[in-house]
Write a protein that binds this DNA or RNA. Structure first.
Lengths: 220, 220
DNA sequence: ACCTGAACACCGTTCAAGT
DNA sequence: ACCTGAACACCGTTCAAGT
């Protein structure tokens, strides 16, 4: 064990993994992913950028640890609907994942850009597959359901946070879209305009999630 | 009209939007998104980086144009299943989108990071909504179906290309996962291991797409 | 009109040297 | 053991000046 702060020898460290991670998450919320640089983080911790590399080998490692931490407690959502069947549990898990990503600025982008193998995501994955197996789904369908729900949730939340950051009112920007569509081309988009520019991302997410659940029900 | 190369005055330009865009796409395929810098692109075009800004106001604008170009012809996929019903057409459109993103290195990342309002994506969106409306779906469900299918497709392909770039054999890396899972925790992941480490991303995509189609069928 | 040269204000990362 | 200082090899973007 030659990892940092292993014994009481030497100066007490001004840095540690946990505090660095927390400061990084705070900085993410304040400034967004593009402004989350090793130098800005170092400044927030009152050290030089080089010092951070004692605790995270690369910035990618830091981002992975951030993604892992975002998923803290998400798997517990399966236990919430006590008497719930598989569909209620799976719905609760997907909602909890979206909520966790939405809870931090650029949360979906951070998650999509990393590949954690920590206990929070593995625990989440195990829980989802477990719910499906307990419901009688074969192992391969249970595994595929995990990916489908997770990929949809990430894809949706990526779009949702991007639209929020762009300042769009809803899934599509009303101003831009209305002008283009009014020209006469895209008649179907014109018909869908109220929904396309609606602000209700939650309803959009629930729609897609419901499709997946119904599709799984049909397969069972 | 004071845009570049408007009249025959002055030196013939060594640069233009179309050639720059094509070179950028070629460079993307050769080097990947992280190595696609304005300086590297300029070098490939034998100019200095500053010259590119006469044709694209920002790098983000260039990436948006790249994403738009990737979607070229994707909407045509709806016409392919000639006698097909809405479900076959929607399936064809989703497959065509995934194929288009897979066709270029980091295609999904480029697409997810931009927000084109060009005729290729608007045409794609209009076509998808049109297929759903023609099938009798109400306008709001048609619009939501578009987002659900698109967000799932982007989310899936993002994961697929990330796994390919990581060199994983399948959706999850066998080596890493097998070790962690063998420890005894995550019993459900252990059961799903064959599928989780399977190399068949196409099958995974088709599974999710089928769930969405079946969910839509149930709603209609 | 189109491009160069040079700068501005940054990046992630490394590593000898200090304490 | 832990951090600084300084460097390396880059970024995106701007803009006066050349041709």
């Amino acid at each position: 064990m030659s990892s940092p702060s292993s014994t009481g020898r030497g100066r007490p460290p001004r840095l540690d993994r946990a505090r660095t991670l927390q400061t990084a998450l705070d900085l993410l919320d304040r400034s967004g992913l593009d402004a989350l640089t090793m130098r800005q983080l170092a400044e927030a911790m009152e050290v030089r950028a080089g010092a951070l590399y004692r605790y995270f080998a690369t910035k990618q490692d830091l981002l992975t640890a951030m993604a892992e931490r975002m998923m803290d407690g998400v798997a517990d959502a399966a236990a919430e609907p006590c008497g719930g069947d598989w569909s209620e549990r799976l719905t609760a898990l997907a909602r909890a994942m979206r909520t966790a990503l939405l809870a931090r600025r650029d949360g979906a982008r951070v998650f999509a850009g990393t590949h954690s193998t920590g206990e929070n995501i593995l625990g989440f994955a195990d829980t989802v597959v477990g719910v499906m197996r307990a419901a009688g789904f074969p192992d391969d369908d249970a595994a595929r359901a995990l990916y489908t729900v997770a990929n949809f949730t990430v894809g949706h939340t990526l779009e949702e946070q991007a639209a929020l950051q762009r300042g769009d009112a809803g899934p599509a920007d009303p101003g831009v879209l209305a002008d283009t569509v009014a020209a006469g081309k895209y008649p179907h988009l014109q018909a869908g305009l109220p929904t396309l520019t609606s602000t209700d991302f939650t309803r959009l997410f629930e729609f897609g999630l419901d499709l997946l659940i119904e599709g799984l029900r049909a397969r069972r």
